[in-house]
Simulated scan of single mutants.
Amino acid sequence: MAARDALLKVANVNPASVRTHTDRALYSSVGIFILLYGVYAIVGAASFVDASSNYSHPWWQWLVGPPVAAAVIAYDRAVVGRVAVNYERLDSTDPHHLLRRRTFGLYAGRMLLALLFAVVITEPLMLARYKGEVDAYLGTVHNRQLAQLEHDGAIATFQRQIDALRAQDGADDAAVADLHKLAADKRKESASTYDQALADSRANGVTQRAGCPSGGYCDTLVQQSRSLMDEATRLDGEAAALRSSQEHGRQARTAQVADLMGQIAEQRSANRTSVEAGAGFGARTTAMWHLVTSDFWGFGFFYLGVAALLVCLDCAAVWLKLVSYGNGYERTEAREARRRELSATKRHEQELRMAQSARELAGDGLETVVAERRLMDAAVAKATERLMAELEDQTRLVR
């Protein structure tokens, strides 16, 4: 019997007043819903704490749920176990006078509490349910944010500075390369001129004469080839000198580029940390609602369905109490309460009458005592007067 009454005690009802199978089934169901809500509140509060700590899974997250569940369960038990007894017209036998009209303020407060819990507790549970999808969407958002920061933030400024420094290196390299190219062209021209001189010396050239006499056309070509070769050597020397003069600037720019690359790496790390920090409860809720609105039948339908189911679980116990107003249990409790109140009222009335009679008897006795005291005082006064008169007569005779 104790096991059968356990759920009734959880529902905060008097097992002695539950006399029908219907009422027992009703309040046993209420007890089951209250226990289920306790589990739901504990898990939901732990999920909320976990979400608030950016999913760091603190060990104390399971310590928050039991007090919260106990508080709400106490409220539910107070609502379910309350019987609105009508204490007016206690001597009436009309069943309609047993209970007062329902007070909806109590139920409205519980419904408001259920909605608050639905927002605070149900949302973390739903985020845990769709964690994979939310993480995937947040990854896309974070990559887009990082790309935007790369394009518009400090990294873009640093990159432009690096590009300018590298452009200066390129300009210096181009100047040196131009000198080397000019020198190469001079050598090529010198080789071509020397080939012409050789051809002319073999009687295959312009003069059609063999040999290369001094002052002749062949000799002129040889001198021109040597001049071009000397000029090429001079250009290579100028290129080497230019390269040497650029070395200090190159080293400075290399140091600046290395420093800017370090700043870019630091900025990227800071950007990633900042962007990835936007993965807490608010960001995940935003991601969840984006998934719900963008793919209602894939996410929204089940999201709203599960949320509605949890809200119904939250309100089930109070709802059963609300719709079962005036059942056999409540009428039995009301009759017993009205009987006790009527008995106490009658007893109080009897005590008041006895007290009134006692006061009346006490008042009559007091009046009698006062009258007797007055008579006694009058007799004493009369006797005293006669005694004084006799004493005066005796004194007069003696004289």
Rank of each mutant, 00 (worst) to 15 (best):
A11R: 00
N12E: 05
S17C: 08
G44D: 07
S52W: 01
V64E: 03
V64T: 03
P67N: 09
V72G: 08
N86F: 01
D94K: 11
G105E: 05
L115F: 07
V119D: 09
E123I: 13
D135R: 04
A136F: 05
R144Q: 14
A147E: 14
E150D: 15
G153N: 03
G153D: 02
D169S: 14
G170W: 00
A175D: 08
D178Y: 08
A183E: 02
S201M: 07
N204D: 13
P213S: 11
P213I: 04
C218E: 05
G237A: 09
E238F: 05
A241L: 06
H248K: 13
A255C: 02
A258L: 01
L260N: 05
A265T: 07
R272D: 10
T273M: 09
G278K: 14
A279I: 01
G280M: 04
F281K: 06
T285V: 04
W289S: 05
V292I: 15
V292G: 05
S294K: 09
F296I: 03
G298D: 02
G300I: 03
Y303P: 00
G305A: 13
D314E: 15
A317S: 10
W319N: 11
Y329T: 03
E333G: 07
R335L: 06
R339F: 06
R340W: 01
K346T: 07
H348E: 15
R353D: 14
A355D: 14
Q356K: 14
E360H: 15
G363Q: 11
L366E: 14
E367A: 15
V370P: 03
R373V: 05
R373G: 14
R374K: 14
L375E: 13
V380C: 12
T384P: 00
T395N: 11
V398Y: 04
